[in-house]
């Protein structure tokens, strides 16, 4: 019979070995071709189940002024590394215009002044970052459905793609982009925000406009939006996954 000491050492060593085996095995699975595809079943299940139980126009929680975060956190890009954008910003975006095209009957361009004269909505909502933090801000902007009403999407349009000014690589390439489906595009709280907390949207938070998609995580809410393109499929755009972070492995469905 082994001594209790030996037995304890054996159990501890076995536990450490087991932990090493688990992490090494999981590491190999993470880097395999097939296993992440199995894991992706989780995304389909979450998206399917959450859409099944939620009304199409379920409204994200709106808060009171007392809940506002003292300063709305800027995450990711705080000044796009792009000369064209910086020139527009230096001129308070006077020369900027939002381009709306793709599968629309009426392609159009809207200046910031024009957007500001359109019907507006103000909402105090919570911004949930995929990293885990939340911040609450007051957003004023044009509901996206107002812009779509002018552009008149064609019946085969399935997604709105948001092309942005901020490059995600040092060399100025890989500009940020995102996409949402038409249900989200027509949702009453989905908007192109031009004001934050009652003041002009700062560059650090996405000036001149940033998208708000209140039932999804922060990375869906593209900043520095330059162009909205309506498409039937986003497979031909950049990495083909529907967004900069999606191309990096994050879920397209960011409702969870």
């Amino acid at each position: 019979m082994k001594s209790p000491n030996e037995r304890r050492r054996f159990v501890l060593r076995a536990a450490a070995g087991f932990a090493a085996l688990v992490t090494a095995g999981c590491e190999r699975l993470s880097r395999s071709e097939w296993f992440p595809k199995v894991l992706a079943v989780g995304e389909s299940l979450s998206s399917g189940a959450q859409h099944l139980i939620s009304p199409r126009k379920s409204m994200a929680q709106e808060f009171s002024e007392a809940d506002l975060s003292p300063q709305f956190r800027s995450n990711g890009t705080s000044m796009p590394n792009d000369p064209g954008y910086q020139a527009l910003a230096a001129n308070a975006f006077a020369g900027w215009a939002l381009q709306v095209d793709g599968l629309v009957a009426n392609p159009l361009k809207l200046t910031l002044a024009e957007l500001r004269t359109m019907p507006a909505r103000t909402q105090i909502t919570r911004h949930d970052c995929v990293e885990g933090w939340s911040a609450i801000g007051k957003w004023t902007g044009v509901p996206l459905h107002e812009v779509l009403a002018l552009a008149k999407p064609q019946p085969n349009a399935r997604f709105a793609v948001f092309h942005c000014a901020d490059p995600m690589e040092e060399d100025g390439s890989h500009k940020y982009y995102e996409s949402i489906d038409m249900d989200d595009a027509y949702h009453p709280q989905t908007m192109l925000a031009y004001d934050l907390n009652g003041a002009t949207l700062p560059v650090a938070n996405g000036a001149p406009i940033r998208l708000r998609v209140e039932r999804q995580l922060g990375y869906k809410m593209a900043k520095y939006v330059m162009r909205i393109e309506l498409v039937e499929s986003f497979a031909h755009i950049a990495g083909g996954k529907g967004g900069y972070w999606e191309d990096e492995g994050y879920e397209w469905y960011a409702g969870i």
């Binding site: 993470s30 992440p36 079943v41 995304e43 995929v130 492995g249 994050y250």
Partner: peptide, 24 residues
């Protein structure tokens, strides 16, 4: 520490894939 996390590197996207699959 990395010995107690999946994946062992700071790879949030993959950690979410594992978590949101095994949650089901």
């Amino acid at each position: 520490p990395s010995w107690i996390t999946i994946p062992d590197s700071s790879w949030l996207a993959m950690a979410r894939r594992w978590h949101l699959f095994f949650a089901w």
